[in-house]
Amino acid sequence: MDVLTNLPSYSKNVFRKGYFSWLLHQCRGWGKFSYGLLVFNLVLQIFSLVQSFDVAPLQSVISFIGGNLSVACVIGISNRSGIQGWAGAISAVCIASVGFMAGNYATAWEQIGYLLFLDFFCILDPKWNDNIQAEKFESWLEWIAYIVFFGFAWAVLYYIFSLTSDPRVFLDSLNLAMAITGSLLELNRKREQYYVWTISSVFTIALWMQTMIQGDGNFALIFSYSVFFLNDMYAFFSVRGWFRSDTHTRA
């Protein structure tokens, strides 16, 4: 709301002198684990590109770009880096394109949602998460409320995408429902969103594995979401992990 009501002011965060140098500087000072994940993912993405290029060159290249930038986005969030906005926006376009090519329409629309309601605002306000105070659920009733919301969202999305030619509507609609639930938790600044994003990574890996087995995809997004999962585990078990920090959030 603050960005929308002060758009001319926030647009100056992009259209200013030295902006690209500033973006490059945002990739410095990260932890060794973060750089290690980036390199590890890059190696896996190169393997996927080489393995699938002869079969589907366009999809392979788009998946390669999306797989690398999506990991850069998530790791950027973990390091409170302003690079997350552009990395997230470009990767969202790539993953949405691959989703439409593969018939995973719910996943494609999920990425479009991230692009419109998250990435653009991160670009305009790169310090959006500097002063966020995450809160825990106050009672078990909140768990029930969000579980009911997830169940309702999944039922509606399953019905909507069952009307399309989506060949994997069960997992595809499930992932979109989890993304919407996780985004609602994030909007309300709840730490419990961590569980949703972690479980979502697992089911997204399952979706793209099924997609690959059925001949509509490759390893690229399987690898990137596996790296997401590793990043989640590190956030949970590290000394400054998820539940040990008052300001850490993930999108």
Results as ranks from 00 to 15, higher is better:
residue 176 L to Q: 05
residue 59 Q to L: 04
residue 148 V to E: 12
residue 209 M to L: 12
residue 68 N to Q: 10
residue 16 R to D: 11
residue 58 L to D: 07
residue 224 S to R: 10
residue 158 Y to F: 14
residue 131 N to S: 11
residue 149 F to C: 06
residue 86 W to G: 03
residue 190 K to G: 07
residue 45 Q to E: 12
residue 228 F to I: 02
residue 246 D to I: 06
residue 176 L to F: 03
residue 94 C to F: 01
residue 39 V to R: 04
residue 172 D to H: 00
residue 56 A to W: 05
residue 235 A to K: 13
residue 196 V to P: 05
residue 8 P to V: 11
residue 176 L to E: 09
residue 124 L to H: 10
residue 22 W to F: 12
residue 41 N to K: 03
residue 132 I to D: 09
residue 99 G to M: 02
residue 154 W to N: 14
residue 84 Q to R: 10
residue 53 F to H: 08
residue 69 L to R: 00
residue 27 C to F: 15
residue 157 L to D: 02
residue 144 I to Y: 07
residue 22 W to R: 13
residue 36 G to N: 14
residue 134 A to Q: 15
residue 2 D to E: 15
residue 133 Q to N: 13
residue 65 I to V: 15
residue 34 S to I: 11
residue 206 A to Q: 02
residue 98 V to C: 06
residue 136 K to H: 15
residue 17 K to L: 14
residue 237 F to E: 05
residue 140 W to P: 00
residue 42 L to K: 00
residue 162 S to H: 06
residue 119 D to Y: 10
residue 133 Q to F: 08
residue 19 Y to Q: 12
residue 235 A to T: 06
residue 241 G to D: 07
residue 189 R to S: 06
residue 224 S to H: 03
residue 147 I to C: 11
residue 26 Q to Y: 01
residue 244 R to D: 15
residue 32 K to R: 11
residue 114 Y to G: 14
residue 222 I to D: 01
